[in-house]
Design a protein around this nucleic acid. Structure first.
Length: 449
RNA sequence: GGAGAGGUGCCGGAGCGGUUGAACGGGACGGUCUCGAAAACCGUUGAGCCCUUUGGGCUCCCUGGGUUCGAAUCCCAGCCUCUCCGCCA
């Protein structure tokens, strides 16, 4: 058996208090993969993942065969033990039966060990299989994202040269990237003075906005254990994208999605409580491995940024309606800030491992002359719920079902600040703030020297 | 960091190594009774997986491992919770 990295601890996928246990019930249902291998293979191909479905199926077949054998043996052993018990009660000599049972027990131990080893590998294989894209998701890669709608008007040419946010930020004393790098390395921005206040103002604006829509505010842990990171699908696939605290085997969260989605891991929720809406402001930490040399300047790609994340736990039947309303909720932020944006439906190849469908919200950066992703709004259907074992009971006496989980950024901050600086700049070098921010910025209308 | 205590079903709370998947109580649900309700009484009330079904079987009493023919019950490790002391934002 291959040696596993310390953060992979199958087969007990999730430990207490999750009451999880079942060897099955992770990610895509085993039975589902078994019965729909072609759909799963297609999904792997469409998502440009490398999971080996056939290897999974082969393991699954072997595992099932041994499982049946083991179960039969155990049934036999249980009967034998019962018989021994009866003999002892009657005061008869049971030594022969015990000797017999010993042989049985040994056989079981052997076979079950084999089974467990298979189970481990099977679980690994299963964790590597991505979620299926929803049927409404276009096929293709990044360039095949489908335009949904836009809002506001992009002023591509205001009549003077739009300067990139890092220049404005530096000039107005809002941003000090060299000193940020000094303390932590490049990609760790330092906001200063009104810049720092702007960050705080944006966070508060967003939280207030979403609270008004019924999102319950959370302040979650900023580090999570491997179970949580597996639950939402960051592990095992994207381990290299997260900061790992070796000594305590904890991960700095790349998004509040991880701690927030996992708060109900292992629980069976009362169906009457659904849907549940949560929001959390947290810093997010991303190693951005493999992205070096890309968007190196300014705030476009940083290792630490702030974000307000929206998370929903909903009835399966409602999840696509909930996706639309979650998207609308994220859009509200940009509308409140009067920032022009567009909505795109990601194509299969661009879809994250765990997502079934995803919209990106993009704002225009006059500084780099590009659309920038500022929010992703996704429906994971029951993928995360299976991994994290989050269920609900539809009604008294009915069987538990997996919830559907969704999340969306509402909205990611570093890029938002960049957009505000670039969109709000005036010919004189000041930056006009959106009116909605005034109450959060002490009535201030402009950022200036 | 030091010293103790403990983790059992929706909750409380039992559980000599062998009909305990789990006593007992509470709650919830269904029924009887009632004009209705309360009380009382009767009943029901965890999850996962496997097999061809009515049905049968295997797992699960924090997690993982061990002892045993057989473990919620014994042993080891870990995690978590609580109390006291120390330290610290």
């Amino acid at each position: 058996m291959a040696l596993l990295p310390p953060w992979r601890k199958p087969p007990a996928l999730l430990s207490s208090p999750r009451n999880d246990v079942s060897a099955g019930g992770t990610m895509l249902d085993r039975k589902f993969i078994r019965q729909n291998p072609d759909r799963v293979r297609q999904a792997v191909a469409d998502k440009r993942e490398s999971a080996d479905v056939d290897a999974f199926l082969a393991l699954d077949g072997r595992h099932l065969g041994i499982l049946q054998e083991v179960e039969e043996l155990k049934a036999e052993r249980n009967r034998a033990s019962e018989a021994i018990n009866a003999m002892k009660r009657e005061g008869r000599d049971a030594s022969e039966a015990i000797a017999e049972a010993q042989r049985l027990a040994a056989r079981i131990k052997e076979l079950d060990a084999e089974r467990q080893a298979l189970e481990l590998r099977l679980h690994e294989a299963q964790l590597g299989i991505p979620n299926l894209p929803h049927e409404s998701v276009p096929a293709g890669g990044e360039e095949d994202a489908v335009f949904v709608r836009d809002w506001g008007e992009v002023v591509a040419d205001p009549g003077w040269e739009i300067r990139p946010h890092w220049e404005i930020g530096e000039e107005l004393g809002l941003l000090d990237l060299p000193r940020g790098s000094r303390v932590a390395g490049s990609g760790f921005p330092l906001f200063v003075g009104q810049g720092a206040r702007l960050v705080r103002a944006l966070v508060n604006l967003m939280l207030d906005l979403h609270a008004a829509a019924g999102f319950v505010e959370l302040v979650p842990p900023l580090m999570v254990n491997s179970d949580a990171a597996t639950g939402t699908g960051q592990l095992p696939k994207s381990a290299e994208q997260m900061y790992h605290v070796e000594l305590d085997d904890l991960w700095l969260i790349p998004t509040a999605e991880v701690p927030v989605t996992n708060i109900y891991a292992g629980e069976i929720l009362d169906g009457a409580r659904l849907p549940l809406y949560y929001q959390a402001y947290t810093p997010c930490f991303r190693r951005e491995a493999g992205a070096h040399g890309k968007d190196t300047r300014g705030l476009l790609r940083v290792h630490q940024f702030d974000k307000v994340e929206l998370v929903k736990f909903v009835h399966p039947e409602a999840s696509y309606d909930e996706l639309e309303s979650l998207l609308a909720e994220a859009e509200k932020v940009l509308q409140a800030l009067a920032l022009p944006y567009r909505v795109m439906t990601l194509a299969t190849g661009d879809l994250s491992f765990a997502a079934a469908k995803c919209y990106d919200l993009e704002i225009w950066s006059g500084g780099v002359k590009r659309w920038l992703e500022i929010s992703s709004v996704s429906n994971f259907e029951d993928f995360q719920a299976r991994r994290a074992n989050i269920r609900f009971r539809p009604a008294r006496g009915e069987k538990p079902r997996f919830v559907h989980t969704l999340n969306g950024s509402g909205v990611a901050l570093a890029r938002l600040v960049a957009a505000l600086l670039e969109n709000g700049q005036t010919p004189t070098g000041k930056v006009r703030l959106p009116a909605a921010l005034a109450p959060y910025m002490g009535g201030r209308e402009f950022l200036e020297r």
